Simulated scan of single mutants.
Amino acid sequence: MVQVTFINNPVTLVGDEMKVGSKAPNFTVVDNGLGEKTLQDFAGKKILVSVVPSLDTGVCDAQTRRFNEEAAAFGEDVVVLTISMDLPFAQKRWCGANGIDNVVTLSDHRDASFGDAFGVHMKELRLLARSIFVIDATGTVTYAEYVSEGTNHPDYDKALEALKAL
């Protein structure tokens, strides 16, 4: 079981830990137009999932900006998703205000489907734990990082190397 803290306080993660080699479980989240999105909507693509507690915080902002910049270099067969518990309206506003257009922001606020499926739902806070997952075109997890302290940055280079290796 993954041990994670948020502002140095231990939190309980709901769901099973996602491990390399596991089949990525399905989930249902909400896009910025209030439409439902599932893992199947990205079938056949290489996916980098950047999970953040809230776009309105410094580390989450920096993480999303970094992956937005990096996403521009990848082709049509790659999609970068940023998933948080932020409301879709807030995600849309944040992306517009910050010129973010290479990542797809998705909200797990409705039922924590993604958080529970990937084991990143912080029970005490009803936020998602900072993490990164790379999923290949067959739906297999090839990289998983659960950031041990939620206010720390993920290992951007390792995640991008895992995506480039696909």
Rank of each mutant, 00 (worst) to 15 (best):
A72T: 13
R126N: 15
M85I: 12
A165C: 11
G21D: 04
V104L: 10
R130E: 03
P25D: 06
F27W: 06
S84R: 02
E17P: 09
L55P: 07
Y146M: 02
N32M: 15
N98G: 09
Y146I: 00
T138E: 07
G35Q: 14
M18D: 02
A112L: 09
A71D: 05
S50A: 10
R66M: 09
S148D: 14
T142Y: 00
V2P: 11
N98D: 08
D31W: 06
G96W: 05
G99Q: 09
Q40R: 13
V14Q: 14
G119F: 02
P25A: 06
R110I: 11
K158G: 12
K37E: 06
Q63C: 09
S113V: 03
A90R: 03
K164H: 07
G33H: 15
M85E: 11
T140N: 01
G58W: 07
V120S: 04
R110W: 12
Y143C: 07
L106R: 00
L166P: 01
N26M: 04
N102V: 14
W94C: 02
D61V: 05
N26H: 08
K45I: 08
G33C: 13
K46N: 10
A162W: 00
K164I: 09
V49Y: 01
R126Q: 14
G99I: 11
C60T: 05
R110L: 10
S107T: 05
A97Q: 15
A71E: 03
T64M: 09
A71K: 01
R66T: 14
V20F: 01
G99C: 08
Y143A: 06
D31E: 10
A112R: 09
T82R: 05
R110E: 10
G119W: 00
M1K: 15
N9P: 12
L13S: 08
D56A: 12
V141G: 01
A137P: 02
F67W: 06
Y156I: 12
G33S: 15
G35I: 13
T38L: 09
D77K: 11
R126G: 13
N26S: 12
V14G: 11
E149W: 08
F6D: 10
E17G: 13
K19T: 10
E69L: 13
S113Q: 07
V104W: 00
L128I: 07
G119C: 05
E124L: 04
Q3S: 15
N68R: 06
D155T: 10
R66F: 11
L55I: 14
K45L: 06
A165D: 04
P10H: 11
V29W: 01
V134D: 01
V120M: 03
A129E: 06
Q3L: 14
H153C: 13
S22F: 09
G119P: 04
V134R: 00
E69A: 15
F27A: 04
Y156M: 11
I100L: 10
G139D: 04
G21H: 00
K92E: 10
K23E: 12
A43K: 13
A62F: 08
L34V: 15
K46S: 07
G21C: 03
N32S: 15
K123M: 12
T64Q: 04
